[in-house]
């Protein structure tokens, strides 16, 4: 009897032990995993999560010039933001800017990548040149375009004058300024986009083209039926990155127009900068930053949800 009872008692005990060991094992695995993740968790916390939390926190306050919080105002910064005509204009310009730059950058880069993908003598030279704008800093490129856009001495207006047309106030006319910034940005982005697309083209299996050749397919047919579908993962990546970049445009605006004329090129990141570091209103600047974060998050999410359906992975 006594033996029996001990046996009964022992069985659940060993079961418990077994569960505990399993739990322990899981804990061990978990901490091991965390240990591997630790470096990036620390980096992300310091440079991303903490600033993000801090930005959200700041957006509910008014601040002094040093950025220290002074008065809690709740949602007021957000309310002011959505009722401010300057900010609404800036959102509108930002979306227009994305619309101007993204498709054109990709079409031009794709075109350059397709022609540079041909096997010609000295093709390496052309590829280097086409991707060369990647090596030019935003500042240098902007200074150079600033010269091109000069109202009276800029080559663009001299050219217009030479063919008898009236010079354009590229950076001072409200209807041209955003367009001028878009041209600059497209030019600057071509290098990077071209390089990525060319890389994508190079990795397409040549047997596909060979069999198409045997079937007697023409150049454009192959382009439409083989190249574009096989390139779609790369294209998808490029579209996502270009859109995010367009939303975050800053350097060229700071150098070329400083948001002017009449706020027509005051894109949202520049508006955040001006609010925080010229007007010293870190609260409303943070509110704008939070909104920008949400918009980019939404855009990227939508792209993955709808855009990725059309992507063909090998």
């Amino acid at each position: 009897m006594s033996m029996n009872s001990t046996a009964i008692q022992q069985t659940p005990k060993s079961q418990i032990n077994f569960e505990q060991v399993k739990k322990k094992q899981r804990m061990k695995n978990f901490s091991k995993g965390m240990l591997f993740l630790l470096p990036s968790i620390i980096l992300f916390s310091v440079f991303l999560f903490y600033p993000l939390a801090r930005t959200i926190y700041l957006s509910f306050f008014l601040t002094d010039a040093a950025g220290a919080t002074t008065v809690f105002v709740g949602w007021e910064n957000y309310v002011t933001m959505f009722t401010s005509p300057i900010f609404l204009q800036s959102m509108k310009s930002t979306f227009l800017f994305v619309l101007y730059t993204v498709p054109i950058t990709i079409i031009i880069s794709l075109f350059l990548a397709v022609i540079a993908n041909e096997k010609l003598k000295g093709i390496g030279f052309f590829r280097t040149i086409y991707s060369s704008t990647m090596g030019i800093s935003v500042a240098a490129a902007s200074v150079f375009w600033l010269y091109l856009f000069h109202p009276s001495m800029g080559p663009l207006n001299l050219l217009l004058n030479a063919i008898g047309a009236e010079g354009i106030g590229w950076l001072t006319d409200t209807s041209w300024a955003l367009f001028a910034i878009a041209i600059t940005t497209i030019w600057m982005n071509i290098g990077f986009t071209f390089l990525i697309l060319l890389g994508g083209l190079q990795s397409i299996d040549s047997s596909l083209y060979e069999s198409a050749d045997i079937d007697g397919a023409g150049y454009f047919y192959k382009l439409r039926r083989i190249t574009i579908p096989m390139l779609s993962p790369t294209l998808f990546f490029v579209v996502t990155v270009t859109i995010i970049n367009a939303f975050q445009t800053f350097g060229q605006i700071d150098i070329l127009t400083q948001g002017g004329p009449v706020n027509s090129t005051n894109l949202v990141v520049y508006s955040i900068y001006r609010e925080a570091f010229v007007n010293y209103k870190f609260g409303s600047a943070s509110a704008q930053a939070v909104l920008l974060f949400i918009i980019i998050l939404l855009m990227t999410f939508l792209q993955f949800k709808f855009g990725e359906r059309k992507v063909h992975y090998q």
Partner: peptide
């Protein structure tokens, strides 16, 4: 391609000089 090169080269050299 040569045409594009000329365009890019004209632009590129100026920027580099500045830098």
């Amino acid at each position: 391609m040569l045409g594009f090169v000329l365009f890019l080269a004209a632009c590129g050299s100026d920027g580099n000089a500045d830098e």
